[in-house]
Simulated scan of single mutants.
Amino acid sequence: MRESKAHKLKRANDIVTLLNNEYPNSKCSLHYKSVHELLVATILSAQCTDHRVNMVTKDLFEKYTSPNDFAYVNVSELAKDIHSCGYHNQKARSIQGTSLIIVENYNGIVPSTMEELIMLPGVGRKTANCVLGEYYKVPSMVIDTHMVRIMGLLGFTKTKDPKKIELEMMSIFHEKYWVKLTHMVIDHGRAVCIARRPQCDSCILNELCPSVIN
């Protein structure tokens, strides 16, 4: 039977309440002290764990202390500095190119709109939403692999397209939870709803999840 819109909204609200009670301190796990550092860290996090990124940026942000430092660095040198994050050559070009545009076109200030952010090299909606939500406090939703998988299991989406999922989730969940929802889902995905071995018996959402394994 197809779920009514009203029931779906209530179920979404109940799920957020349970997640918020279980993970009250969920937040972005990337370490940063400025919006530009957050942007760099988020670019590095593609296909890489936040833990590894934080290990790399600890020294990286001591060596490069401003957008100018990243903008005019030798790309090969930067690639060596971020080598362990994977795809280091591509990420180095993106970070250097993005930083150069920020310095020369935006007076060193990271832009604060989706339209401007996604025009930067290596910056897609996921990275842009992270910067907007975490630093600029603009209601936004990051759709990562945990969100794609768990929102699908919860029956809130049938697509794997991040942009479509983003729009679907924004129509289901209250705006005040958009930013934190992703962090709570990530924490839940790591602790309980594990991809290859979901712990449905101990899941706080098992009575609200149509994919529960008994």
Rank of each mutant, 00 (worst) to 15 (best):
G124D: 05
N89D: 14
Q199R: 15
R52I: 11
Y136Q: 03
K5S: 04
L154K: 01
N89R: 12
A92C: 07
D14K: 14
Q96K: 15
V148Y: 10
V138K: 09
E104K: 14
F70M: 03
C193Y: 13
K80M: 13
I150E: 05
E168S: 11
G155L: 03
T182H: 15
H88W: 10
S112I: 01
H7F: 09
K10V: 08
F70S: 02
F70Q: 01
L30S: 07
V185Q: 04
H146R: 04
S34W: 03
D187R: 06
A6N: 10
T159W: 13
D69Q: 01
A12C: 15
K33G: 07
P198Y: 05
R190Y: 08
V148N: 03
T17W: 02
L38T: 05
G108T: 08
I109S: 08
R2N: 07
Q47G: 00
G86F: 02
V185H: 07
K80V: 07
E37I: 01
H36D: 11
P111S: 15
L44I: 09
K10C: 01
N54D: 11
G124C: 04
L167S: 15
P24T: 07
V131H: 04
T17A: 11
A79T: 04
K126V: 07
K164E: 14
C200E: 04
G108C: 07
V131T: 03
P121K: 09
P162F: 14
F70H: 02
L38C: 04
L60M: 10
I213F: 12
E175K: 15
L18R: 13
Y64E: 00
M114C: 00
N25E: 13
K33D: 13
C130Y: 07
Y136C: 08
I172W: 03
G152V: 06
T113G: 03
T65P: 00
S76G: 13
S84M: 12
T17P: 00
T65G: 01
H31I: 12
C28T: 05
S45A: 15
L19S: 06
D50W: 11
N25H: 14
T57R: 02
D14V: 02
R2E: 12
K5A: 09
L60N: 09
S4D: 14
S171F: 05
P210N: 06
P121L: 07
Q90P: 00
I165R: 06
C200T: 09
G152Y: 05
V40P: 00
